[in-house]
Nucleic acid binder design. Sequence first.
DNA 1: CATGAATGAGCTTTCATTCAT
DNA 2: AATGAATGAAAGCTCATTCAT
Lengths: 198, 198, 198, 198
Amino acid sequence: MAGVEQSPQTPARAKRADARRNQQKLLDAAAEVFVSSGVDAPIREIASRAGVGMGTIYRHFPTRADLVIAVFRHQVEECAEAGPRLLAEEDSPFAALRRWIGLFVDLLVTKHGLAEALHSEAEGFASLHAYFLDRLLPVAEQLLGAAVDAGEVRPGTQPYELMRGIGNLCVGGDTDPRYDPRRLIELLLRGIQAPPAA
Amino acid sequence: MAGVEQSPQTPARAKRADARRNQQKLLDAAAEVFVSSGVDAPIREIASRAGVGMGTIYRHFPTRADLVIAVFRHQVEECAEAGPRLLAEEDSPFAALRRWIGLFVDLLVTKHGLAEALHSEAEGFASLHAYFLDRLLPVAEQLLGAAVDAGEVRPGTQPYELMRGIGNLCVGGDTDPRYDPRRLIELLLRGIQAPPAA
Amino acid sequence: MAGVEQSPQTPARAKRADARRNQQKLLDAAAEVFVSSGVDAPIREIASRAGVGMGTIYRHFPTRADLVIAVFRHQVEECAEAGPRLLAEEDSPFAALRRWIGLFVDLLVTKHGLAEALHSEAEGFASLHAYFLDRLLPVAEQLLGAAVDAGEVRPGTQPYELMRGIGNLCVGGDTDPRYDPRRLIELLLRGIQAPPAA
Amino acid sequence: MAGVEQSPQTPARAKRADARRNQQKLLDAAAEVFVSSGVDAPIREIASRAGVGMGTIYRHFPTRADLVIAVFRHQVEECAEAGPRLLAEEDSPFAALRRWIGLFVDLLVTKHGLAEALHSEAEGFASLHAYFLDRLLPVAEQLLGAAVDAGEVRPGTQPYELMRGIGNLCVGGDTDPRYDPRRLIELLLRGIQAPPAA
DNA sequence: CATGAATGAGCTTTCATTCAT
DNA sequence: AATGAATGAAAGCTCATTCAT
């Protein structure tokens, strides 16, 4: 590996830059394909869209779930980070919760196939599931806890259950014109609200 | 006509009896397999579980959806028929609606795989979807309409959307101990309730 | 064979009449199906067209070739019998030969699929082939021989080869508007004619 | 670029060399299998004869007709190219036509199964048929036209019909010792010849 | 490291053929 | 005898995954 590398400058970096660019091509291609053909699309399709060999995908993402996670990691991170920020910005914890859930729903509904993948019980998506939970459930707990503490939400609401339910509601939210998950989620939020103290 | 069922004079009947018994074996086996392996299970698996050849399944149910529908038709019918009855029995339309939705949820949650099948966008399940809609949506409309008329539910609630949402919520309701769709559906119902006239 | 036959009158005959009528239904149905779907049509199709069970076909015609032969036997017989008659009727042996070949071609071209079946090398059609040969080759030999004797046809023409060739030419003669086997067969006949003695 | 074909600098080439060798194995195997089992032989059989997986065949030849065409393309090309050459070489257009038809017959008779495939009305062979027509019919038209112009062949002879007829005559020409299509084709040629001008 | 050819398991579907009724 | 349900071998085709280059 030493030696015949052509340009003397930044040989290692060059590789990395190359590899990173490759990764990005891959992620972009995968994202597109997930939209058009779902997260179960043939590996080959993703590879050819990315202009790389299938082996390259396997190298970078040994498992389909790894790829899916990688594709959505950025948005998941953004969403996770938005939690505390909203809590600080918004007037009330409940308002923050509502807006945060809006972001979460955007994530699931916009990225066609994500919601479906999340609910797929297929073997390989376990880790995708886990990743979502690890990253987002704590945020949900924090927001929900704050809202409960503020007396805006009835105690006893299970964060996991709520998130799972919202995730479920998002299935099909981007393809069926007669079905808008956001309306139902709004109902759900109304449902968890504590009755005015009066 | 009574008694001598085995008599050779009823050759056609004999056939039917046999075939019908076979159908039942098939439906039972399919139901089991749907539970253990999902509604996408290989035909072979169902066939071998039923102890019949694959051809037999194709004869009885040319399409996978035909089989799935057949497996669940009984329960769907029961559920559909319960709608008007509950409307008559219960104290209020809303109470009837709540109980009917309970039956609907039982159907989806109990029969593992049904909810998933319903949301499958796979080609062949279109008719399953259609069947559910044809049979159950009118009932939902009737109940919801009555509740709206009685001033118990806010006008503007879309029956289709509500049913779809409930269907979505049921996904995974039988496998995940931390997730009980019924609680969320109760929230949803609270959400559609009209505020007390006062 | 004596004894428990129900009605005392013509018991055996009754049966036979029934069976014969069945056979005819079968042959008619098979003929139709051969036209529409070729001689390789599923047995089931023929059975259902005839309104009988598949088993019945197997009983009457254990082999597909048996059925094909039965279907066309009548016409083959007619054709075979026409040979000597034409030899007697026509002005010259060559004229008789030409007209007889016309009948043969009609048989093959009219009955869609017959020509194809004849050339099928599929296992089961061997006996069909043999039947055609047994019945028609002698006739061809007789006619050709007479024409040779009369000095109308060059000696050395092989009856088998000629018949096979004509059979071949008939393939596709009923479906392709740009292809009329009769014209080519006329050329063939011209080709075997002996040059005028002059 | 000369010489070191094995050098690692030509990775793409290396692939191609390998794949090309594979293709050849495939074509050879297919040719053999077509002879022994006809062009409808199971893909599996061809694959195993070639010592490759079935997928490999599908990769190279998505359609059965693609494979058949590939198997015979070389000979078809040779035959097509021989047309004009013979026209230039031979003493008369008719002589050229006769020799060219000889080549055509060789092609069909030698490659057992080709003639049959050509007459198969099966769905997938349409393109094979088309290929033959596209490539060879123009040649036939040229030769026949020249012969007509030279007064050697009666006007009115249809090139398509003649070629089809010759193709038909070739069926079975390699298996039946009592049947030699070449003799009949010679008769046909005699039949289309214009009578000597007197 | 990347490539993409090759592999072959796994599924679907069709029918000839058998055989219980 | 007739029926047609049942059987299961055969084929086709698709992809995930491996691995030689």
